[in-house]
């Protein structure tokens, strides 16, 4: 297999990992703030804080991994995306900083500071939007190459229906993923009240997620025909994704096996996400940058792959330990042990 494909597969997997763990995190922050506003925090806050506190740093690493990896495997992305993303990414960094500091500050200092909790909740909705702009830009049509480097046409970006569809999808998906996960978590904790509330959220956000996802495929037909066609060639992957979606909604609706429902949800997003990723091949930034002109030299690619395998050998057992202690430990989840 060529280095480009290995690089893309590794990076896309990490991005997928980030999408899932960050969605749980972003959505939880929003539900937490929402429950404060509606006076239901006694039901939700404990469940949410219990899961999130030990893992927020790990969530952040997935993102760092992705952007360090992409610059490593495809140094030219630093030139193209680095030059145009100064504003959207800087805003994302600031929002991430608010979130990152929240756990530490909230847990140890300003416990129950309402203003901070609201800001934290709001970032859960703005962040997916500001990060997903990068996906829109990669579809092409917003970047112009000039003598002083690539330039981003903000006006075209903000007035494009594609931008807003992707923003809506990312927000809906975040709330949906998060609600399904937390339903499962609350159910394991034996917290009937929280399960009830979260199950309702999951059902509410299922429909907008699937509707906007379909809408984007439609938008792409007019925005980037080439990409639309390669998407259509992968229709079967989207079909599998849809079956997973129906299965997980069915389970949640019937209050059955929330754990399996969450696994189905991962399957749903994995198929859709990888199908989308494969269909973009070979473009990193349509039509200026492909994986072939972007890829790093052979010796670095080999070194990165070796480092990656060695790193995984270290990480996977550690991640397993973390999950066993905080996710699958019945006593911890239900709050019986610290």
């Amino acid at each position: 297999m060529s280095y480009e494909i290995i690089g893309m597969a590794v990076l896309w997997t990490f991005l997928f990992g980030y999408v899932i763990v960050a969605s749980v995190d972003f959505g939880a922050g929003f539900f937490n703030a929402y429950s404060l506003m509606t006076g239901k925090q006694h039901i939700l806050t404990r469940v949410i804080q219990r899961y999130l506190s030990p893992v927020w740093e790990v969530t952040n690493v997935f993102l760092v991994f992705f952007f360090v990896g992409i610059v490593g495997f495809f140094p030219s992305t630093a030139y193209y995306y680095g030059s145009i993303l100064l504003i959207p990414v800087s805003i994302s960094i600031i929002l991430l900083a608010i979130r990152g500091s929240y756990y530490a500050f909230e847990t140890y200092g300003a416990r129950g500071h309402r203003g901070y909790a609201f800001m934290y909740g709001a970032t859960g909705l703005i962040l997916p939007a500001s990060l997903s702009v990068v996906l829109t830009i990669s579809e092409g049509g917003f970047v112009e190459l000039t003598d002083s480097g690539p330039h981003l046409d903000y006006w075209a970006l903000f007035t494009s229906p594609l931008t807003w569809s992707i923003v809506v999808l990312s927000v809906a998906a975040v709330l949906y993923i998060s609600a399904v996960f937390l339903t499962w978590y609350a159910d394991r904790a034996g917290d009937v009240e929280a399960t009830k509330v979260l199950r309702r959220y999951a059902l509410i956000w299922a429909l907008p997620t699937i509707v906007t996802a379909g809408g984007i495929v439609y938008e792409l037909r007019s925005h980037n025909v080439e990409h639309f066609e390669s998407l259509m060639n992968l229709w079967w992957m989207f079909a599998i994704s849809f079956i997973f979606f129906v299965a997980s909604v069915w389970l949640i609706w019937n209050r059955k096996k929330y754990g399996v429902a969450f696994v189905m949800l991962i399957g749903q997003f994995a198929f859709a996400f990888y199908a989308y990723g494969i269909s973009k091949y070979p473009y990193l930034l349509y039509p200026h940058l492909t994986v072939f002109d972007g890829v790093t030299n052979d010796s670095m690619a080999i070194a990165l792959i070796i480092a990656f395998v060695a790193g995984l050998a270290l990480l996977l057992p550690s991640l397993y330990l973390l999950m066993r202690l905080f996710l699958f430990d019945k006593k911890y989840v239900s709050g019986k042990s610290k």
Partner: peptide, 28 residues
Amino acid sequence: MELAGHVIALPLFMEVFAFFFEAIFLGI
């Protein structure tokens, strides 16, 4: 970054691994 990425991506990448490792065990 475009130029240096070809040469120094390895330590940058490994730094993230080290940080990941630290983050997991600090949480625990």
